[in-house]
């Protein structure tokens, strides 16, 4: 039998249907990163604005499956307002959680914890990570 319920959690579906922080802005204070997964057609653009060491805003736009699109929205909600250091810690913890590596359970992942089930679906790990990886790229640019 299928254990799909572990994947399609309510939080994920909610963000898929009603994405927050969606839509890009034309503002030079934002750093932009575009990631494509050519095998499945996922295509995500992430923008972030960092000021005084704090993630002030994240925007996203793109097409992809529910896991991919919702994760961009969840990530935006979780990370906006965090210091860059906190955001990097959460990012690392999240990616470790997805890939079945050891991760620091003390780190508060907030709604991103909903993606814990993805680790049981190896073919979908990429879907849940590309928005986060794109965000990581924007951080590198702002350094």
């Amino acid at each position: 039998m299928n254990n799909m319920e572990n994947l399609y959690r309510q939080v994920i579906m909610d963000h898929y249907k009603n994405p927050r922080h969606k839509g890009l802005v034309n503002d030079e204070h934002y750093h932009t990163s575009h990631i494509k997964n050519p095998t499945c057609g996922d295509d995500i653009t992430i923008q972030s604005r960092v000021e005084d060491g704090i993630v002030k805003d994240i925007r996203h736009e793109g097409t992809g499956c529910s896991i991919c699109c919702s994760s961009a929205s969840v990530m935006s909600e979780v990370l906006v307002g965090k210091t860059v250091e906190e955001a990097e810690k959460i990012l690392e913890t999240y990616l470790n959680m997805l890939t079945n590596k050891e991760y620091d359970e003390e780190v508060e992942l907030e709604d991103a914890i909903a993606y814990q089930g993805v680790s049981k679906f190896p073919a979908r790990i990429k879907c849940a990570s590309i928005a986060w990886k794109a965000f990581e790229d924007t951080l590198k640019e702002s350094e």
Binding site: M1, N2, M4, Y8, C65, S66, I67, A123, C127
Partner: peptide
Amino acid sequence: HDAVTYFDG
């Protein structure tokens, strides 16, 4: 991609 995961299961 969502659908194919269901079939894979």
